[in-house]
Every structure is written in structure tokens, then in C-alpha cells.
Design a protein around this nucleic acid. Structure first.
Lengths: 337, 337
DNA sequence: CTGAAAGCGCTAACAC
DNA sequence: GTGTTAGCGCTTTCAG
């Protein structure tokens, strides 16, 4: 409500001096500083954001682009947001979650009007129109995930290769040889996720390396689909002794249905979910938690680096999921005989 | 990148005229308008947000305040955000999710610096410091949920009374008389949620009305706690034939553990979850979906009304959860005889 | 119907 | 160490 001008008058100094103490831009005598601060307190001064942004050409706001209507920000998405917001605050920015459809208008408006200083893009797809729009703009940005050709962009991504390798290695060490892989199904709405493709490839490679035949399964990304898949496995008398699941929202359904159909977990069958959100998940489900908060932090660091040091090399980082936690993991059952 | 000034020059008009066509503020000849629009297109003009906000004293941005680090925006929270963002866009605003801790600084800064035109507050608690801060500010706001004394604020809330009544009535109609109630446990971090208290009271009232003895249960808000609770019920040989669950994240755990412990659902026991997120939940769990998107829309309408018509009566609205969907609901089992 | 010009509140040279 | 002042880009009266 109070303007800088009013503060200046009350403190008996010039408006410039007030600006200096507000921003710490220049040194000011302790004496004057005290007077200014008192005046600010008395008047309840707060700097006007738009005015400051206009004068500086900076807003100190970062947008985390969120595909409205398409994704749901549950589990790891929340961790991500939280980690990102925290890091941004530490570095003097405010990060807000910005709903933006995939279409041109919204993103163009965001970048062209100078509303934000930078953008973090999550749920990046292999062929992602939003990335093209950002590339075309002058707004610094960083990706969580990668497009098919990630060169020339700043990104951080989950290391699905390493994580799937790790998962398969652990299962093999537990004696498993019939390890099936459950992924998501293309939903027709969005182009494929890079992570899914890389995880898939990593599974095939791991199977080859360990000398077992790959068993690929897929279902939609919800508990109901997970149940159907589990049902099918039981009905078909699948001989898999372990499931590696890269389908966050289907995993609980798979587990529930297997239990309901009389399978004892993990005695009969191990289930290991990858990239699942950390935190309050069902302890009955073993999962390798995705590094949500860490991705958020690094993503924010990446944009801010782009903003403040445009000529530094582009940050490009991979982070694996954490080690398995939860109860659905155990030694392979002895072959029936 | 291009300024209004440049557009004006290229179109051979004054900067004021450009402003008129950009904002539709005043009538402009078709002829001039065409010239201006051509110039804008050629130059790729986009209005500078901060400058416009400074001149108008309006940002056209709305903040959905999100308790960072404390809540997780899953399920119905997402529906809510999406509905709110959509409605805001329809009415010419952009709604962003703003992480803000409960402490003074963050909220004060948000409201005092003129960053946003209005605020929607979600996850409102009975005694909520954030509401006091908003009240003390001059920024229009609306609550999702209510404080202990909701008078003098604009709010929309879930009608837990009506929903719990509805739930109990349906179970009674299915022959149930031993209907237990599962709520959350105070988590020590946050003051109680108004909805929880009202739902609790409504259950007690419904029990009295139908003449059955209330059976109150509680557990923490995660699948693991739900499992423990279910385990305990089985171990103790509970004779409840139905569970009304007002604990979104525990419900799946309860259901899973009951199934695992050999209970057939709903033949042995009905489970009805209230206020659970609509959408891709486990179809095995019957739930009365919370009206997330609708709440979001109404919440946004409420703030915008406050902004644009400060003297209209305060919007205060209750919305019940939808009718049950899902499979865990059935007639009461015949008493063992 | 269009233009001139006075701000909006703050920042950052540049002078003293 | 502090003050003067010219903008930042746009909006909006007020004349014409």
C-alpha cells in the first residue's frame, strides 16, 4: 500500500536511498538505514512487484509447466514440485505450478509476456511440441526428462537404464529367472515418454545379459487395469516368479488382485515397482522410489543457471531411483516338482 | 520482444491506438485496426505483463495457495486444481498453484506486493492462521473449506453432513445395522480439518437416527495404516458388516488387507469410502467421489466475484459428494446362525 | 476516431 | 554515502 516515495519522505531521504536499502544494492550508513527501516515498518511497506519487475526486466518467478487436464500430479509429482519450490526459494525465486495445455497459445503467452524468468518442463515426451515452443522463445528453460534429441537443452532425468538394471540384477540374485516386465500402454493422447522406452530397452538388454527370455506385459495406468492384468496372469497360469513394474498407478492393483486370487506375496511371486512415488505408499508393495525431490531441485538449479550464466555448459544429469523398499520382494520359489 | 511503440510506428498510428486494439478498450476503424494487427503480427508483438500490470493496477493472476511440504496434491486435489484453472481461464485470469508455508512471510509477501489479484485457499483448517493473514490483507480471497467461524468469508465446502447421511442411509437400506466409521487420526502437524469434525458428527447423528450403536475407528492417512486397522478388525472378530471410511489414503489399504485376510468383499463386508478422488481409483473400492472440479470452479468464481463486485454478498456454498461407484458395496450378510 | 502526455512504482546510471 | 532523474512498457484521461 505504501510506496517507496512515502517511505522516503517519512525517513527524510531520497527514494533512491530507500531502494538501496530495500535491495541491498549499495551501501548505506547504519544511521540512515535504521531510519529507512523504521519508516518502512511504520508504513507497512512492501515493494510493488510489477513496478520492480518492469524496472529491472526480471520477475524472479519461475514456472513449473504442468500439463493441465492430462497428467495428475500425484506421488512423485508432488515431491518434485515441493523440491523445486524449495530450491527456488533458496535461490531467491518463487516457483509456481503453471497449468498449460500443449497448445501454442498458452506457452507463447507465458514466455512472450515476460511473466516469468524461466520455465521448468515436466513430463517431457520424446516428441514434445512444448519443447519446440520453448526453443523458439528466448525464455531460459530446463526439462525433466528428455526429448528424442536432447542436445542443446538443459535437462535432468531419471536413469531408467541403471534402475532397471539394478532391479533385474537384484531379482536374479534372489534366484529369479522368469522375470516379467509390466509397462504402461500408449494412451493415444500423448506421444511416448522417453523413460518408458529406455526402461523397456534396458529390460530387454538385462534379459539378454542374464540369459533369460523376456516376458513383456502392458496395461493402462490405473488400479483397475492392474487388476485385470494380474487376473490374466493367474488365469493363464503364468510361470513368472517376479514382476518388474514400470507403471506407477497400476502396481497397487496388480498386487491387490494377486493377493485376492490367492497368491502369497512374495513367497509365490515377487513384485517390484519402479519409479513409484516415495512416501506413504503401501508397504506391501516393494518399490524403487523415483528421486522426485532431487529432480525438482536439479531442474530448478538448471534453469536458474541458464538465467544467470547463459554461457555455462548445459546441465544434463541422470539420477537413478533409490533401492527397493517394501515387502513384495523375496527369493524365487522352488520350482514345483 | 517488440514494444507497443514499435508496433505503433510500423502501423503509422499512435501508441494509444495500439493499446485500444490490443485491449478492445475503444472503437477503432476497421482500416486502422487492420494495419495495427498486421504490424503486431509482423513484429510478433506480445504485451509486456509487468508494464501492463503496473499501469492497470491488476495482474489478472490468481493464486491457489498450496500448503507446501504438508499436503499432497493427489486425487481430488488435482481435480480441484484443474477445475479451478479452467474456470479462471474462462473468466480471463490465469490461476497458478502457489506453494506457501503456513508462516506469515510468504503469504504477506504474496498479498502485499500485488503479485496476484486474488487468492483461493485450499485445505482450510478449523483454526487457520493463513485465513487471519488473508483477512488482514486487502487481497480478495475465497476458502475451500471453512474455519470454525466462517462468517465474513467467501467459501465453498464439501457437504460432509449430507454425504455421510447419504452413505449411512444407503447402507441401512442394504440391510446393514453394524456400520462402523473410519476416520483419520490427528497427525499432530495441523489443526483439525473442519470436514472431518462435521462428518464425524453426522455419523453419530445418523447412528442415533437409525438406532444403531456407533463404532468409531481411526487410523493414519496411508495404506499401511489402513492395513493395520483391517488386520485388527479381523483379529478382534469385529461384527461390523459395513465400513464408512472418511480417510482417502487409508481406504485402499483397508480393502487390500481385508481381501488378503480372506474376507470376501462385499459379501462379508461392505466398504464405502467418502470424499475419495474421482477418476482412476481402484474399481474394487466403492467410493463417493468428492466434487473436486466443481469446488475448484466455484472457488474461482467466488474470488473473481469478490474482485469484480466487492459489494455483492459473500458466496458460501456446500456441495455433496457424488453417489457411490465401485464394487465393495452390497447387502448385509445374513447373520451367522 | 485518434493522438499527446501524464503517470503507474521502482531501478540504476550519473552526479555531487 | 546520498540525491536527481531518466526511463521500464503500457494505460487512460483529455483534447482535438
Amino acid at each position: 500500500m505504501a510506496t517507496m516515495q512515502q517511505v522516503a519522505e517519512r525517513a527524510g531521504v531520497s527514494i533512491a536511498t530507500v531502494s538501496f536499502v530495500v535491495n541491498g544494492t549499495k551501501h548505506v550508513t547504519d544511521e540512515t538505514r535504521a531510519r529507512v527501516e523504521a519508516a518502512m515498518r511504520d508504513l507497512g511497506y512492501a515493494r510493488h512487484h510489477a513496478a520492480s519487475a518492469l524496472a529491472r526486466g526480471r520477475t524472479n518467478i519461475l514456472a513449473l509447466l504442468y500439463p493441465a487436464l492430462e497428467s495428475d500430479l500425484s506421488g512423485s509429482g508432488v515431491q518434485f514440485f515441493t523440491g523445486a519450490a524449495e530450491r527456488a526459494r533458496e535461490r531467491g525465486y518463487t516457483l509456481v505450478l503453471w497449468p498449460a495445455r500443449n497448445d501454442a497459445g498458452e506457452i507463447a503467452e507465458l514466455t512472450a509476456t515476460g511473466l516469468v524468468d524461466g520455465v521448468v518442463l515436466m513430463e517431457v515426451q520424446l516428441d514434445d511440441p512444448r519443447v519446440d515452443l520453448l526453443r523458439a522463445s528466448t525464455t531460459p528453460f530446463a526439462l525433466i526428462g528428455r526429448t528424442a534429441d536432447p542436445s542443446g537443452t538443459a535437462w535432468v532425468d531419471i536413469d531408467f537404464e541403471a534402475t532397471v538394471d539394478d532391479a533385474v540384477d537384484r531379482l536374479v540374485a534372489l534366484g529369479h529367472r522368469a522375470i516379467a516386465y509390466v509397462e504402461g500402454e500408449p494412451d493415444g493422447r500423448s506421444s511416448p515418454h522417453g523413460g518408458a522406452a529406455r526402461a523397456h530397452a534396458a529390460y530387454l538388454a538385462a534379459a539378454a545379459r542374464h540369459g533369460f527370455a523376456p516376458r513383456l506385459l502392458a496395461c493402462a495406468g490405473d488400479a483397475g487395469a492392474g487388476r485385470s492384468l494380474a487376473s490374466r496372469l493367474v488365469d493363464e497360469g503364468s510361470d513368472a516368479t517376479a514382476l518388474v513394474v514400470v507403471n506407477e498407478h497400476a502396481a497397487p492393483g496388480i498386487l491387490a488382485e494377486l493377493a485376492q486370487r490367492g497368491r502369497t506375496i512374495p513367497a509365490d511371486l515377487s513384485v517390484l515397482s519402479i519409479g513409484t512415488s516415495p512416501g506413504a505408499a503401501d508397504p506391501a508393495l516393494a518399490r524403487m522410489p523415483s528421486p522426485g525431490a532431487e529432480l525438482g531441485r536439479l531442474g530448478v538449479d538448471a534453469v536458474i543457471d541458464r538465467i544467470e550464466n547463459p554461457d555455462r555448459p548445459l546441465p544434463q544429469t541422470l539420477i537413478p531411483c533409490g533401492p527397493p523398499e517394501g515387502d513384495s520382494l523375496g527369493p524365487a520359489p522352488r520350482p514345483a516338482g
